[in-house]
Design a protein around this nucleic acid. Structure first.
Lengths: 281, 281
DNA sequence: ACCCAGTAGTAATTTTATTACATTTTTGAC
DNA sequence: GTCAAAAATGTAATAAAATTACTACTGGGT
């Protein structure tokens, strides 16, 4: 359990000074980590040994140990507001900003993900005669990635990144098939056409796109990804990474649905590629 | 800006003892945070003031401040010790685990990224006559994604995901060209062959792979991604997502290097695809 | 009123970090 | 190569911080 939530816990009995101390710590935990025990003791008007006893009482080796643990915990929570990249940024700042923006994008997608929908999509995949993935531009590589993951299952799956092939394949779609349309914006005309054509064939159309987009309205099931940014020229589109995470979720959920016997199959797939690799270092 | 990546940075000039110290710290950063300065100094066979000077030299108030910052950073990476997925997990637990594992993978990659190397790779890209991206299997989609991002620059770039085409192209590589090999494991025999062939042509070979792999040894520049897991059948490979983030960093750093006039070009590229989209909702 | 357990404080001690200064090493000009 | 300047490192002294040992309160229970 985290230190902070341990401190917030009202159940455990505390001494008078412990209560004062906890109140002060929770007021600004970040400040504590760079505070010597004397300053803290003074601020709460208690003695240094009392602070120390409090720390050891919580199971820490001492006050510095407590501070270290608190710092680690705060470092975790500290989710920077993903800021745009400035042309004056140093490389290491660019690295920080991009990774942070990616993490934020993942968290947003996770928070908005409808678990019930995941289940419905998995059912659709599992009962499909064949699965077709369509994406253009940056979404083409997401479609390729999804194909690679879904290839492990015994349902025929194919990704198409060419608009002509996509149209051709869509015309031959049947009601038992499943089409997955991938697009950040959900506004790519070509892909909307595909979704529309597929819908009239009766196939299940799944969208991996912005839930408020025209494409989303043409789909039977929509897994939302905040298309978000794309205003700034330098800041990269992190949403495609969130889409990949959703693909991971789908593939994993599907595998689990298939049951334990299927994990043997997955293992076989894994070993089948082993021979393409060098052993050792 | 991450402390660990600052330490990994090979660009900045370091003194002899600083090199020893950094090597020791990177060996087990977690151990450092609970180490007094005397123990650390002794372990590296340097004096305590040297350690202290190193910390203040990096911009910290002193050794304790350095430890605190390091702890906070490690806390970020260690947060969710991404646990394997169990067959009994509910969908919402699967979602949490996958997203958490992905975030952890990103943080780990970020912490191990050598900023100096990023710069070197960007220089290589910028001075290349042409850029070739090679990847197989799951890395094929990473190569496709990289192609899509690098297409915005005026250097000819192409991704190949077919082993025959890769070999053909590699034979016609020149010293002015840049080859980027993408592989999680760095042990795919076919890709090692490609890197080897390219190296003899004099082209700059960049690896986006496990730094301890055979492939890495064949590359001129290696951007490390912990290949990490891949033991569990259900848990997906999160490292490809980290690779995408690195691609983002490279593309952004390159764009920044090109200077402000280039941002106009990026803007033009952006508007050129706008006509493929529907307006409004 | 007295005792006892829990709690807190004072002061001494120990541990840890920093500073001041001397010495060595490295670097770059000639 | 030689020398001087600058940078880097070490030793020892000092300061800061944390911990321990010991003493003194506080408040319920008899």
């Amino acid at each position: 359990m985290s230190v902070l939530s341990q401190l917030r816990d009202t159940q455990t009995r505390r001494s008078k000074s412990a209560i004062k101390l906890i109140a002060y710590i929770l007021e600004d935990p970040t400040a504590i980590v760079s505070m010597p025990i004397a300053t803290l003791a003074n601020a709460v008007s208690i003695s240094e040994p009392t602070v120390n006893r409090f720390c050891t009482g919580m199971g820490f080796k001492g006050f510095p140990d407590f501070k270290l643990t608190l710092a680690a915990e705060l470092g975790r929570a500290e989710s920077g507001i993903a800021s745009d990249i400035e042309s004056s940024d140093s490389i290491s700042l660019v690295v920080s900003k991009i990774f942070e923006a990616t993490r934020v994008s993942l968290s947003n997608t996770q928070n908005h993900l409808d678990v019930g929908l995941i289940d419905q999509v998995v059912v659709a995949l599992d009962s499909a005669r064949s699965i077709v993935l369509c994406g253009l531009g940056a979404s083409a590589s997401v479609a390729m990635d999804a194909q690679h993951k879904l290839l492990r299952f015994d349902t025929p799956v194919v990704a198409h990144t060419d608009i002509i092939n996509q149209r051709m394949l869509t015309t031959s779609l049947r009601a038992e098939d499943c089409l997955i349309c991938i697009s950040y914006t959900g506004r790519t005309t070509a892909l909307c056409d595909i979704a529309d054509m597929a819908a009239s064939s009766g196939a299940t159309v799944v969208g991996l796109t912005d839930p408020d987009s025209p494409l989303a309205k043409l789909c039977d099931l929509v897994l939302g990804v905040d298309s978000g940014e794309d205003t700034d020229v330098y800041t990269p589109m992190t949403s495609r990474i969130a889409q990949l995470a959703i693909i991971d979720v789908l593939a994993t959920a599907w595998a689990l649905r298939k049951g334990p016997s299927f994990s043997k199959h997955l293992q076989r797939v894994k070993t089948s590629v082993a021979s393409t690799r060098l052993a050792g270092n």
